[in-house]
Design a protein around this nucleic acid. Structure first.
Length: 251
DNA sequence: AAACCCAGCAACCGCAGCATA
DNA sequence: GTATGCTGCGGTTGCTGGGTT
């Protein structure tokens, strides 16, 4: 028996949302809160698929959504985070208050990828400077093997990598073996493992996004992080993101 | 003025992770 | 341990409006 489709496709409104539909959705969520997307359309009196309602709310109707006018600071952060995280749009969006993953994805695909491609073609005429590998990566000139994006809940450092990190050195490329008893860090509510929602948080990023990062660099300090990465990561966002070049140069 | 092109963006689709029975 | 349902994510599609021919 196959999985039930999220909605019957026949007779369900598709395409652009009308202002009346927006109003119905907003009113319902303001009264009853988010969630229960599958049953929400019926309860709200909408002839829409639940997924469509969720998308409309998340990307358009939700309070605090910023639309358009991406600032140079935001653009710079998007580029840097993309270099670190790849196409993890929701993670990137999580660092940009008011921005949605869909908007950032669209902005990247339509604006930034072209801009970066233009930069790279200028640079490639000069030299094959190894330091600009990050830009080549960002522009897609070099394509690393990136698995389909999934939620990052666990990081494994091989014992060799841990040793390098303790010495404030970038770890070498290595493939951990099954028997390697290195260090596994995973997302958990328990106290016996680092409390982080994803890998990026482990590196001390603020959940509150770009504004706090720029205005309060001290929040980049991390109790769990300090013993291992103290000199490299205890400064501020810019130094952390500068350091990312060292990592990409190992690719 | 009409036809065409294209960039930007909203929305859709399929898949994977997680929770729960 | 397995099946099922819900939710969230990223890739992709297709509509729309502005610019060009």
């Amino acid at each position: 028996m196959g999985r039930k489709p999220c909605c019957l496709k026949e007779g369900v409104n598709r395409g652009a949302w009308s202002s009346k539909e927006d109003q119905l959705l907003s009113n319902y969520i303001n009264l009853n809160g988010e969630g229960q997307w599958r049953t929400l359309p019926q309860k709200a009196g909408l002839n829409r698929c639940g997924k469509s309602c969720r998308l409309r709310w998340m990307n358009y109707l939700r309070p605090g959504i910023k639309r358009g006018n991406i600032s140079p600071d935001e653009e710079d952060l998007i580029i840097r985070l993309h270099r670190l995280l790849g196409n993890r749009w929701s993670l990137i969006a999580g660092r940009l208050p008011g921005r949605t993953d869909n908007e950032i994805k669209n902005y990247w695909n339509t604006i930034l990828s072209k801009k970066l491609n233009a930069d790279v073609s200028k640079e490639t005429s000069d030299s094959e400077d190894r330091k600009s590998i990050g830009k080549y990566l960002s522009a897609g000139i070099i394509t690393p093997v990136v698995p389909k994006a999934t939620r990052c809940t666990k990081i494994f450092f091989s014992s060799d990598e841990v040793q390098h990190l303790k010495n404030n050195q970038c770890p070498p490329l290595s493939t951990p073996t099954d028997t390697d008893d290195g260090l596994t860090l995973e997302s958990s509510k328990d106290n016996d493992v680092p409390d982080m929602d994803n890998a990026l948080d482990y590196f001390g990023f603020s959940q509150n996004g770009i504004a706090d990062v720029f205005e309060n660099s001290s929040m980049l300090e991390s109790d769990e992080l300090a013993p291992m990465f103290e000199t490299k990561f205890n400064n501020d966002l810019s130094s952390l993101l500068e350091f990312e070049d060292d990592w990409t140069n190992f690719l």
